[in-house]
Amino acid sequence: MWKYIVRRIISGLAVLLGVSVLTFSLTFFTPGDPARTILRKQMGGRSPSQAAIERFREANGLNDSIPVQYVNWVTDVMQGDLGASYHSETAVTTLIGQNLMPTVELAVAGLAVALVVAIPTGVISAVHKGGRLDYGSQVLALLGLSMPNFWLGYLLMLVFAVQLGVLPTHGFGTFGHLVLPAVTLGTGMAAVITRLLRSSMLEVLDEEYIQTARSKGLKERIVVYKHTLRNALIPVITIVGLQFGYLLNGAVIIEMVFQRPGLGSLLIDAIFARNYPVVQGLVLIVAVVFVVTNLLVDITYRYVDPRISLGGGGE
């Protein structure tokens, strides 16, 4: 067991190393000089002088060769320093800290919306397998997934903010501000959860103890909701919980449309502004979260059910 964990941790570190090399090299192959781009932004669209560009490059170590820059960066990261934004020396960790909660809030709310939609549709779908209700709820769940996020966002804004005037169009802070972004994100996830829940329900419904419960004469509804749903939901939640990358991808566009602060908008602004320390730091953090959750899930599974071998070959 310990040997397995150690091996996984080492390979996890290897993944992080790979991610950092990839991010670093990609950002530096991108055309567009960060010095020029950032100075231009600071100057409100005016072009900076060559001397200013040189000074900026010097101050931010951009004149070193890429391998040297990479080694410097990794050394700093090892000491817990993710560097500072090119814009104003704000520490990358501070920026991430400022933007983390809004995205987590959006993600949790989006997941809640997704579950509110997916649980009834998934259950109805499984219970009425092959019937009209099954088809209807499947299509309903898929419609949310099929609409491009930004289109759905604008439509919701038009209806609920402009026409009905019940919700704000944009911003951050109150529950009202969270509703439309969460619905936009949640409808996309709902289809996936419905699909998983349906098949998970069908599987559980076949299990012996459900059959036993039924034969004991418990009311059908209690059987379905109390026993089946509870057991069917567990694997579903686990899988969905791992979709961190999806959440970040989804958050980019939703945060842009609804003018919410968050990791998604932080990332996209940093990419367009060629603010590399922010891009590298953020990607590394995302990768760490991914690697750690994966590791925890794998270890938990292994602990629970030693028959599962998830380590790949070489056992």
């Binding site: 993944v15 991610v19 990358g245 991808n249 990332l267 996209i268 990607v283 995302v286 990768a287 991914f290």
Partner: peptide
């Protein structure tokens, strides 16, 4: 997979 696809 650990890489945000959008960034790439």
């Amino acid at each position: 997979l650990a890489f945000p696809g959008l960034l790439l």
